[in-house]
Structures are given as structure tokens and as C-alpha cells.
């Protein structure tokens, strides 16, 4: 091994370490900024007891490895709704449980947005198996919109299994988030006009389906 080779190897090693250090500092800085922002938002809670309860809960959740942003948002929602501290705490406990369950369903990886969307889905009657199926179809990209559309359909009165099958089939054939959102809006409009939710989903789902390639492979299309 020549001196020049050794010098190049040392330089590469130093560059790698420096890059890791910069990345670590950036991550810590971002986390620090997020913490600061969360703390500032918690200061908006005027009731001391509620603010203290929420702060303690958030710190404990962070220590448990739970993403805290959805919890902060739910706490602020409770404050806006003038809920009692006890009621807000119950909501946060339930949400953390659902986030934990969502993490299992969306394994191996999930973003905070996906976890929050899946937690909402579970709370509104979307079957756990449906969330797991969506992740299987698209393991390499965010499926927040897909989970959200499924939740909206169920919340509007479409039978959970029916909605799950339709969203899953559309995803499997390459439907984009925008197409699913438009499908959801069309179904909601039909329901408002008096069409039954199931009939509206059938009709609109077929319309979107006709625009998609029958052999589209989602995994191939979305693999990074």
C-alpha cells in the first residue's frame, strides 16, 4: 500500500466522519428546534394544570419512543374544544396506544404522518388488516393520503371492508394520491345527493379503475 493510497483512505475516512458529525448536529438541531416549537405551542395552553399534564405526558411519550407531534396536536385540539384536563389525557393515552398499534401495522418503517393517519383510521373503524394491506402494496413510499381517504370513506358511511378493498385494488393498479382524493370527493358529493355510500363508491371506483392500467405494478413503480 503506497503512502498516497493511505493518505486517500485517511482523507475519505475523515470526510465520512465529518459528514456523520454534520448530519448528527443537523438532526439534533432539528430535534431541538422541534422541541422548542412544541414547547412554544404548549405555552398557549392557559390552564396551568392542563399545560403541566400535557407537558409531562409528552415527555414521557418521547421517552417511550412515541412521536410526539400528533399528541401535541391532539392536546391543543382538546384545549380548543374546552375539554377538561382529564378528558385530554384520556384522548392522548388512546392516541398513543393507536400510534403504537399503527407502528406495528405499518412496519418496517412509517413516517409520523402515516402513524397519525393510521391512528385516526383505527379510531374510526378502519380494520387493522386493511392498513397492513396498504403497507404491503406500497412498502417504499408514504401512504398517508391513501389511509386518509380510506378513513374518510368509512367516516362517510361506506362499509369498512368495502372501502378497504376498493382503496387496496386502486392502489394495486397504480392510482395516485390525487386520484384517490378525487374519488373520495366524488363519493362524498354523491352521498350528499342521496346516493348510498356503497353505490357511490362502486360507481366512482369503477370510473377511476377504468383509467388505470390493469397490470400496473405498484411496487415496481414506487421502489426508490
Amino acid at each position: 500500500m503506497t503512502l498516497a493510497t493511505r493518505t486517500n483512505g485517511f482523507a475519505r475516512s475523515m470526510i465520512r466522519r465529518a459528514a456523520l458529525a454534520v448530519a448528527a448536529i443537523a438532526t439534533l438541531s432539528a430535534a431541538s428546534v422541534q422541541l422548542g416549537a412544541q414547547e412554544a405551542r404548549l405555552l398557549a395552553i392557559q390552564d396551568d394544570a392542563t399545560r403541566s399534564m400535557v407537558r409531562d405526558f409528552i415527555e414521557a411519550a418521547r421517552a417511550r419512543g412515541t412521536p410526539t407531534e400528533p399528541l401535541v396536536s391532539r392536546a391543543l385540539e382538546g384545549v380548543a374544544f374546552r375539554a377538561t384536563a382529564k378528558r385530554i389525557e384520556q384522548a392522548m393515552v388512546a392516541l398513543e396506544e393507536r400510534i403504537g398499534r399503527s407502528r406495528e401495522l405499518l412496519a418496517p418503517r412509517a413516517t409520523v404522518d402515516e402513524l397519525a393517519a393510521a391512528a385516526d383510521a383505527l379510531a374510526n373503524g378502519v380494520p387493522a388488516s386493511a392498513i397492513r394491506d396498504l403497507r404491503k402494496i406500497a412498502p417504499y413510499r408514504q401512504i398517508t393520503v391513501e389511509i386518509g381517504v380510506l378513513t374518510e370513506l368509512v367516516a362517510k358511511g361506506v362499509a369498512p371492508k368495502k372501502a378497504a378493498v376498493m382503496v387496496r385494488d386502486l392502489m394495486a393498479r397504480g392510482a395516485t394520491g390525487t386520484q384517490l382524493t378525487e374519488l373520495n370527493a366524488a363519493v362524498q358529493q354523491d352521498v350528499a345527493f342521496g346516493v348510498t355510500p356503497v353505490a357511490a363508491l362502486e360507481l366512482r371506483g369503477r370510473g377511476v379503475m377504468s383509467l388505470l392500467s390493469p397490470s400496473a405494478s405498484v411496487n415496481a413503480a414506487i421502489r426508490p
Binding site: 385540539e77 382538546g78 374544544f81 374546552r82 375539554a83 378528558r87 385530554i88 384522548a91 385516526d120 379510531a123 374510526n124 393520503v145 386518509g148 381517504v149 378513513t151 374518510e152 370513506l153 367516516a155 362517510k156 395516485t176 394520491g177 390525487t178 384517490l180 382524493t181 373520495n184 362524498q188
Partner: peptide
């Protein structure tokens, strides 16, 4: 919007693609 019940009121679920 789809209505979700929470804290004795309701919120709408909005999905932005």
C-alpha cells in the same frame, strides 16, 4: 368533510394529496 367526533364536538378530516 368526513366528520370525526372528539371532545364532545366534531372535526372534519381533510386529505391534501
Amino acid at each position: 368533510l368526513a366528520k370525526l367526533r372528539e371532545f364532545g364536538g366534531e372535526v372534519g378530516l381533510l386529505i391534501v394529496p
